[in-house]
Design a protein around this nucleic acid. Structure first.
Lengths: 216, 216
DNA sequence: GAGGCTAATGACAGCCACTGACAGTTGACA
DNA sequence: TGTCAACTGTCAGTGGCTGTCATTAGCCTC
């Protein structure tokens, strides 16, 4: 009984995971180096030596492969919100979960890509209309999931009270503005992203109050 | 000089407009009656007795035809914001422009469809993933345009001050939540939409403050 | 460790959205 | 009325995506 494998991954599972990761890596590499539109599914499949049909068995479509990396971090974010202490106010819980997410981004995706590749893929998404569209739709789904988490935390009925959805929608809106700013700017460091996120969240109140001309 | 036509529409222009409108009408009719995915471009073209190629000369794609009706009202909304008196605070200007938009919806689309068809088309968009994605992307573009209008009104530099984008993003978020609620609910009247819009906008402040458990 | 079961894959055919190229038709305008 | 340019139809082709079916290859049992 030396070096046992308790949960028994199984050779089949291993291979499947390997194929999936290789396809994803190849897709990210091709998308970031030559663009999303100029990359065909056949190309990705060929890079991993599988048939095009197999690609579609691992990913629902080309889009899904392009958004899979981001999907990993989004999933972690949702879990992060769920794990926040119950005494935190909703917006504060969201804020902390996002900041933690940025901090642990590197470990979350290391089996697939580097942080730099993640950022480059993000740029591709933001600059490719069809990908941006899909990204926004998925963000909407994520917001719905998080609204459920908040409603549960606060013991509210989401169908009767719009505040959970409103708070999450506002938060999501700020995140989108932040992401855009972050891509447009020069600072690609995770610390820079954390700082920008905090700053913009603090500006929501002032932005809603009007009287912009007298402020800053 | 009896019954002159000053700007001279021209027979060609007339025919073009006619083809465009007929294609749009046919598309809306087919999408709302049998669904977006189950409608092919050939079907739409055939309903108007033009070739598939011609359809693509009038619409960049199937999606554009599905979103064109909504696009008319969105364009009017942007103009509405631009036309609001300069003394209004940003959020107030947005609110008034939207409410006015609902009120004049009927006249805006009458050459193409009825209000009921507009609502049904909206449901199709909301329930078809690819259309919802495209819709959200276009909304993002609209928000950018409106942020520019607000920044100009207030004499701000959008690249230095995030408040115009933040305010518009928050407003857009509320609108999306409202639209969803409105589609889920039973009340399809324009008056009901106006009322819901007002109510949700009033809730943004409370939603951000937390302490949900003590309030209503 | 041979054979059966089943999941994973490849190969093939086909649908549909969309595009480029070219030729035919029809308003516009001198 | 004839010329020009815009509009359209036809055809061929690309690429994303799906259904089907035969083949391969882990897995499990006896």
């Amino acid at each position: 009984m030396e070096t046992t494998t308790p949960p028994r991954p199984g050779l089949r599972e291993m291979k499947k995971r390997r194929t999936h990761d290789e396809l994803l890596r190849a897709a990210v590499h091709l998308f970031t180096s030559q663009g999303y539109e100029r990359t065909t599914v056949d190309e990705i499949a060929e890079a991993v030596d599988v048939s095009q049909r197999t690609f579609f068995r691992y990913f629902a479509g080309k889009e899904e492969a392009a958004l899979a990396l981001e999907g990993i971090t989004v999933g972690r974010f949702v879990e992060g919100v769920r794990a926040r202490p119950a005494h935190e106010a909703p917006m504060e819980a969201l804020r902390q979960a996002v900041l933690e997410g940025w901090s642990s981004l590197s470990e979350a995706i290391e089996s697939i890509a580097s942080v730099e590749q993640y950022l480059r893929m993000y740029r591709v998404i933001e600059s490719t209309p069809v990908l941006l569209a899909a990204h926004l739709r998925r963000s909407a789904e994520t917001e719905e999931a998080i609204a459920r988490v908040l409603a549960e935390r606060e013991g509210l009925d989401m169908d009767a009270d719009p505040r959970p959805r409103l708070a999450v929608a506002v938060f999501g809106a700020v995140m989108r503005v932040t992401e855009r700013q972050w891509i447009t700017g020069e600072d690609y460091s995770l610390e820079g992203m954390r700082e920008l996120t905090s700053r913009y969240l603090d500006q929501v109140g002032p932005a809603l109050l009007g009287g912009w001309r007298t402020g800053t």
